[in-house]
Amino acid sequence: MNIFRLTGDLSHLAAIIILLLKIWKSRSCAGISGKSQILFALVFTTRYLDLFTSFISLYNTCMKLIYIGCAYATVYLIYAKFRATYDGNHDSFRVEFLVVPVGGLSVLINHDFSPLEILWTFSIYLESVAILPQLFMISKTGEAETITTHYLFCLGLYRALYLFNWIWRFYFEGFFDMIAIVAGVVQTVLYCDFFYLYVTKVLKGKKLSLPA
């Protein structure tokens, strides 16, 4: 465990909690892509199946359970409890265009051709693009609530911090994971445009709105 890894995990946790609290406190999921949240629930489910097969640490087990629990709680709030506030018309990204190619790629390029390993690989590839329905929704409506931008910033920061963690681990442990690195770079790059808007607009107190 190094500082980049720990702050990455905490940033990820902060993102998940910010989103849950935003929906819970405002009693509304307006502006949030339910499709992205379903994809994240699928990501955690397929990645953390090793909860049943191996124990790594108490930290590892607790964080996995929290991530999975929060992901499903978020999906429940969007599609059940606050369904009336869900903006389905603007959440029109076709997720099959992500899930099908990602599924194919995880069967073709993985560390080991076994069910658990393929599902883990699927989750890594899927996570890298799971935010696209959310970004698509913002580009469609042309704006995002400030709290939603804080959520996106923490979520993007998490994978960027993991990149530094992997550089650290390569130098000090001589170990690297090419699948995670390539997917992590793709994932971080997808946030770059948003990071720019976040720094130039939101941090200066302005609402994030895109030119028409």
């Binding site: 890894r5 995990d9 990820h12 090793d50 191996s54 790594i56 640490s57 590892n60 964080m63 996995k64 991530y67 560390h111 390993e117 883990w120 993991y162 992997w166 681990r169 390569f170 001589g174 170990f175 690297f176 994971d177 090419m178 699948i179 995670a180």
Partner: peptide
């Protein structure tokens, strides 16, 4: 340098 899955990561 060895390539493989970093199993302790989240």
């Amino acid at each position: 340098e060895e390539e493989g899955k970093l199993k302790d990561e989240l």
